[in-house]
Design a protein around this nucleic acid. Structure first.
Length: 477
DNA sequence: AAAAAAC
C-alpha cells in the first residue's frame, strides 16, 4: 500500500512557519527532520482543522500536536502575571499518569522560550500543589480524566475557554472505561473548538466518538495500524511456564541487556518476577497499578537513568512511554489482547533505532500467539530456549491446583518449601530432553534441589520438534 | 482473564 515514490526532499521544521521561539526549542532538543506524522499533522493542526490521527507511539506523535498547539496559542500569550490572563486554552487528555507526565515534559520543553505556561494533573499524588499551579494560571493543561474532573469540582480548573482539545491514546481511554468521564469533560468545553483525536486503532467505538465530538476531521495515518516496525526483530521463545523466569535471566545475560522492559500480564506476577530477578542478580524494579505513584515514578526515573536493568511492568507501561533507544523488550507473558503486543514492542526500536522484541510463549499461550500473528499479519519466528536450571516452583504451585493455600501465591518464589516440590512437573516434555549443564548440576546440589521431572524419553519426539503441537492437559474447565 | 484510573 505504501508508495515508495513519496519520499522526496528531506523536510525540515522551518517549512511550517513556526515561531522562532519554538524552532529554537526544537533545535535544542536535537531534532532537525520532522517525522512522517509531524510532517502531515503540523500543517493541518495549524490550519485549525480537527484531526483524526492514527499513529503508533514512537512516531513523534506528541510533537506533532504540541508544536502547532503552542504556535496557535502564541499570538494570544500574555506575559501578564494575572492568573485571569492565563485561562486553560489547550487541554490534553491521556489514559495513564505516566503518559500525562511525559507529554507534559515534552510540552514544557517545546514551550520553554515562550510565555505559555503548562501544567500536568493526575491522580495518586497530592492535589494541593496541582491546585496551586492551576490557580497561578496555565494555558496548556495535560491531565488524566479522573483527576481533572476532581479539579473541576474543586473549581481549581475552568475549562470554559478551551480552544484545543487533544484526546491522546483515545482507544486506550475507551478500553479503560473513561467514556463517561470523557463525556462529562467534553460537555464542559466550548462547542467552538479544535479537537484532535489520536488512536492506535479506528474501532467502531472510536469512530462513534469521533463522529460525535469532531467536526469534519482530517484523517492522518502514518504506518498502517496494527503493524509492527520493520526495525524491530521479533523472536518467540517456546518455554515451559515454570521456566520463564530462568529464561528471562538467560536472555538478559546472554544478550548483555543493560536496559530492558519485561512485560507481565498481572500485577502480582510483575512484583514476583522483579523480586526473583533481583535474587538472580539482575537489578530490577516493578511498575504496576498497585504501586504508589511515587514508587511508579521512582522506578521509571531510575530506569531512564540506567540504574535499573530490568523494569518489570504490567500494561501500565505498554503505551506511550518513551525511553530513548530501548534495545529490547521481553514479553514474560503474551498479552491477552493482541493489540497490546503491538504497543508493548513499540517500546523498542524507537525513531529508527533497531530493537529486539523477545517473547516467551508457554504451551497454554499458543492461542494468544496465533491471535498476535493474525493481527500483525505475519508469522513470528519461534525458537526453543533451553533453560539450564529451571525454576519450577511457580508452576508446581499452580499445578498442585486446589490444594494451594491462599497466600501461597504471595510467598511463591521461596525455595524453602521443599515439601511442595515432590510432584514432578507435568509439561516437561515441552523442551526436553533435559541435559543439565555444569551450572545446572551445581545447582542441583544446592541446598534445595528441584526434581528434574519425568524423563524426557517418555515424550514423543514430535512434541519436541513440533513444540506447539502438543495439546496441554487442561487443569480447569 | 487482566490492566488502568478520583477521593
Amino acid at each position: 500500500m505504501s508508495d515508495p515514490a513519496v519520499t522526496p526532499v528531506q523536510p525540515t521544521f522551518d517549512q511550517f512557519g513556526l515561531a522562532a521561539e519554538i524552532l529554537k526549542a526544537i533545535a535544542e532538543q536535537g531534532y532537525t527532520t520532522p517525522t512522517p506524522i509531524q510532517a502531515q499533522a503540523i500543517p493541518v493542526v495549524l490550519s485549525g482543522r480537527d484531526v483524526m490521527g492514527a499513529a503508533q507511539t514512537g512516531t513523534g506523535k506528541t510533537a506533532s500536536f504540541s508544536l502547532p498547539i503552542i504556535q496557535r496559542l502564541l499570538p494570544q500569550a500574555s506575559t501578564s502575571a494575572s492568573p485571569a490572563r492565563h485561562p486553560v486554552r489547550a487541554l490534553i487528555l491521556t489514559p495513564t499518569r505516566e503518559l500525562a507526565d511525559q507529554v507534559a515534559a515534552n510540552v514544557q520543553s517545546y514551550a520553554k522560550h515562550t510565555p505559555l505556561r503548562s501544567a500536568v494533573v493526575f491522580g495518586g499524588v497530592d492535589m494541593n500543589p496541582q491546585s496551586a499551579e492551576l490557580r497561578r494560571g496555565v494555558e496548556i493543561l495535560i491531565a488524566t480524566p479522573g483527576r481533572l474532573l476532581d479539579h473541576v469540582q474543586q473549581k481549581t480548573a475552568n475549562l470554559g475557554q478551551v480552544q484545543i482539545l487533544v484526546l491522546d491514546e483515545a482507544d486506550r481511554m475507551l478500553d479503560m472505561g473513561f467514556l463517561p468521564d470523557l463525556q462529562r469533560i467534553l460537555n464542559l468545553l466550548p462547542k467552538e473548538r479544535q479537537t484532535l483525536l489520536f488512536s492506535a486503532t479506528f474501532s467502531g467505538e472510536i469512530k462513534k466518538l469521533a463522529s460525535t465530538y469532531l467536526r469534519n476531521p482530517q484523517t492522518i495515518e502514518v504506518a498502517r495500524s496494527n503493524s509492527t516496525a520493520a526495525n524491530v526483530t521479533q523472536i518467540v521463545y517456546e518455554v515451559a511456564e515454570g521456566d520463564k523466569q530462568g529464561a528471562v535471566v538467560k536472555l538478559i545475560r546472554e544478550r548483555g541487556l543493560k536496559q530492558v522492559i519485561v512485560f507481565c500480564n498481572s500485577k502480582i506476577g510483575a512484583g514476583r518476577l522483579a523480586r526473583q530477578l533481583e535474587r538472580d542478580g539482575v537489578v530490577a524494579s516493578a511498575i504496576h497499578g498497585d504501586k504508589s505513584q511515587l514508587e511508579r515514578m521512582q522506578a521509571l526515573d531510575a530506569f531512564k537513568r540506567g540504574e535499573i536493568e530490568a523494569l518489570v511492568a504490567t500494561d501500565v507501561a505498554a503505551r506511550g512511554l518513551d525511553i530513548v533507544e530501548l534495545p529490547a523488550v521481553i514479553n514474560f507473558d503474551l498479552p491477552f489482547n493482541a493489540e497490546d503486543y503491538v504497543h508493548r514492542i513499540g517500546r523498542t526500536g524507537r525513531a529508527g533505532a533497531s530493537g529486539d522484541a523477545l517473547s516467551l510463549c508457554s504451551p497454554n499461550e499458543r492461542k494468544q500467539l496465533a491471535e498476535i500473528e493474525k493481527l500483525i499479519k505475519k508469522p513470528l519466528e519461534v525458537e526453543r530456549l533451553v533453560v539450564d536450571a529451571p525454576v519450577r516452583h511457580q508452576r508446581e504451585e499452580r499445578e498442585r491446583g486446589g490444594r494451594r493455600e491462599r497466600d501461597d501465591r504471595r510467598r511463591s518464589g521461596t525455595f524453602e518449601r521443599g515439601a511442595h516440590h515432590r510432584h514432578a512437573p507435568v509439561d516437561d516434555f515441552f523442551f526436553k530432553p533435559y541435559e543439565p549443564s555444569p551450572a545446572a548440576i551445581k545447582r542441583e546440589e544446592a541446598p534445595n534441589p528441584e526434581p528434574v521431572g519425568k524423563p524426557a524419553s517418555k515424550q514423543p519426539l514430535a512434541a519436541l520438534l513440533g513444540g506447539f503441537g502438543m495439546p496441554r492437559k487442561t487443569t480447569s474447565s
